[in-house]
Structure formats: C-alpha cells, structure tokens
Design a protein around this nucleic acid. Structure first.
Lengths: 202, 202
DNA sequence: ACCCCATGTTGACACCGTCAACACGACGCA
DNA sequence: TGCGTCGTGTTGACGGTGTCAACATGGGGT
C-alpha cells in the first residue's frame, strides 16, 4: 500500500513538535509541517480540522509530559522537598521547551477549553501539583494553597522565559525559595481569602 | 498641507491600540491598522521599521500604564495593604486589557529587549512593584521578595487570563491572600535562596 | 528658484490558511 | 467477480499578510 496507513498523522505531529521549538508557535505553518512530514500541503486537513486543532494536539502532549515530569520529580519525596522538586520540574519544563510551554498557555493560539483531550491533560497536570500540596496542608486549604503554588511557579517560569528576568540556572534555588514560602503559608491560619473563606468550608 | 504632519504615527498607534483588544496581538494586521487610521497599507513603514516595532510601541505604552496603575493603587497605603493594592492593580490591569497584557509578555511577538523604550518602560513597572516591597522588608531581601511577589501575581494574572482558572471577581481576595503570603516570607529569616544568598550581600 | 527629503501611494512577490475538485487504493456487498 | 463507497492523498484557486521597489508630491533650506 502506498498509503501511510495512519502514520501520516503521527508523522505530522512529530514534525510539528520538532519544528515548534525552532520557529515558535506563531511561526509554525501548516504547509511547512506537511512538507517536513513528506506530504502535500493539504494533507494535514485529513487529520485535523484546522491549524488550531493541530496545535491543540501538541499542547495536550505538552501537558501530559508536564504532569509526568512533576510526578516523577516529587514522587518519592515528601513535604516541602516534594513541593520544591515539583516546582523545579515545572520551571525546568518551561525552560527546556519554551515554545511548547508558551503554546500550552496561549489562549489566542489554542483555546484549550474547546479541545476536550487537551483540557483533560491540563487538568491532570494541575492534579499532579495539587496532590503534592495535599501532602503538606489541611484538606480545606488545599485549593487555596495549590493555587498560590501554581501561580508563583508559573509566574516565575513565564517571567524567565518571556522577560529573561534571571538565568535558567537559578531555577533550583528559586523553586526551593518558593516552596518554603508556600509551605509557610500552608502552616498559617487562614490568610488572605478570609473575606470569603466561609464558602470553602474552612 | 495635505500631510498628517506627524499625527499619522499617533493615529496608527491609536488605531492599533483600539483594534488590539478586539482581535488579539496575533490577529492584528499592519494593513488593517493602516486602513483603520485612514491611510494606505504601506504608510506604517514610514513610522515603524516593521510590524514588531509597532507592537513594541504598544507594549511600551502598556508597561507605562501598568506602572502608573500600580503606583496609583499602592501610593497612599503602607505595608501589606500597599502590597495587596499593588497586586490587585496588576491583576486588574491584566484582566481589563488581556490582549495588551499578553502582548507585553509575548517574546515571540515582541522581543522587548530589542526595543530600548519598551525595555525601559518594563523596568519602570518592575520598579513600581519593588518600591512597594521595599516598604515591608529589609533592604538585603528586597530583590528576592519582590521577585516572589511579582511571580505570584503575574502567574495568577496569566492563569486567569489564559486558562480561565477563576472568575475575575476573585481578584481582590487573591491579591490580599498573595500579599499576606509574601509579607510573611519577608518577615522570615532568609529562606530558600540561602544556598547562594551571600551573592546578594545579605 | 531649486533641490532634497519626509511622507504618502500603488505594484509586485512569496507565503499563509483554507475551500473545491479530483485521483486512487481498500473493502463490503451483490 | 464486479461495483460503489470511503479514507487518504494530491493539485488548483482565492483572499489575506508582511515587506521590497518604484514612484508621486509638497515644504523647507540653500
């Protein structure tokens, strides 16, 4: 059979994934991806509804790898050390694959909410982080604390990537600093959201 | 004189600024901006080197407004209240002008470092935040603490914008929560970066 | 009076996403 | 066996975009 019998889709995704880090999400062209996969320019439309749908697959893959990295790093540790390791894995992922990380959080390019598979992968990545936080604070505060943890780590990751705030090597020390800040807040009585904290059943 | 004698540039920037929030930074076309300003498609090239240079002007304006918003909010307050107000202003800015905020931190679209005016405006915005932090922690720790403050607030702002994590109305409570977390860390003995903190002269 | 240059305009090119139309091998059913 | 349908692939065409070139024009300095 002269067909690629199903591996055309895989070839397209692989080509897109490799090219992504070279040219960035905005520089990715569907035609270029097809050419790199050895197919004609229209071939991608046999496997993806449009460009955004293809980017959504890349983003979903990214969230899966991010979740795996976070779990692998924090797995056998506990408490603050686990949180620091998870944070470092998160920041490290962003620094190792900046274009992919950008794509995953670029609503203008891919509206994750419209692609169930990608949304599920993103939810799983968040769950990996939440699980680590659950190991060091009371259940009633897990939501607030993990949001704080996610925010600080995500903010630092995007600031280093987008604004070049610090060299990537500072990642380990920063992850530790942030983990201790968040862990300290987890040990404290309800702080901050107290205005509406009754809604959370705390 | 039939010329726009200098206001063509201003008209282009104004048209771009208004259109930006409707279509997003990626959707902005130089030709469309020119048309909206009542000029021919090539007119922008008389005032900007290329598309990126025009986006850099928008980004610079954004940083100026962000700095002003942060200073206005935190101005007459002190301590944690000032930090919470600054954080709320930062998050509020991001939520009020999501496309502009995205553009300001989208290195793929505009590499701020290559446009001195934009880089200066960005530095000023950071300075506004740093000044607030300086009001509630020892000088030797201002750098670390303000980086943590910036990270957590920026992370939350981008996560609400890009991932729709929470409704915008939670902004005030979150800013307060984050301010207290950061302020608590400012009161603590050197945490986290202790591995290399000697480099900072502490 | 003259020329230069800032400013503005249209022509042209390559590239892009996407819609149509068409080619062809695989497979179900008579 | 033959035939039709469908999944997969290809090329043609259209409107849109950033940008380079060439050309128009009017005001200000010599």
């Amino acid at each position: 059979m002269t067909y690629h019998h199903g591996d055309a889709r895989a070839a397209l995704i692989a080509a897109a994934g490799e090219w992504l880090e070279e040219v960035g999400a905005a520089g990715l062209s569907l035609r270029g991806v097809a050419e790199r996969a050895g197919l004609s320019r229209q071939a991608p439309y046999n496997h993806f509804a449009d460009k955004e749908a293809m980017l959504a697959v890349l983003a979903a893959q990214g969230f899966e790898r991010l979740a795996a990295a976070v779990r692998a790093a924090s797995g056998w540790r506990a408490g603050v050390a686990a949180l620091a390791a998870a944070g470092e894995a998160y920041i490290g992922f962003a620094q190792a694959r900046p274009a992919l990380f950008r794509l995953m959080f670029a609503r203008e390019l891919v509206d994750i909410a419209r692609f169930p598979e990608a949304a599920a992968a993103a939810g799983d990545a968040l769950a990996a982080l939440t699980q680590v936080v659950a190991g060091l604070c009371p259940a009633a505060r897990v939501a607030d604390v993990s949001l704080a943890a996610w925010s600080i780590v995500h903010g630092y990751a995007t600031l280093t990537n987008e604004a070049g705030i610090e060299p990537p090597a500072r990642r380990t020390a920063r992850a530790r600093q942030f983990a201790e800040i968040v862990a300290a807040s987890a040990r404290t009585a309800a702080d901050g959201t107290n205005t509406r904290s009754r809604e959370h059943g705390a």
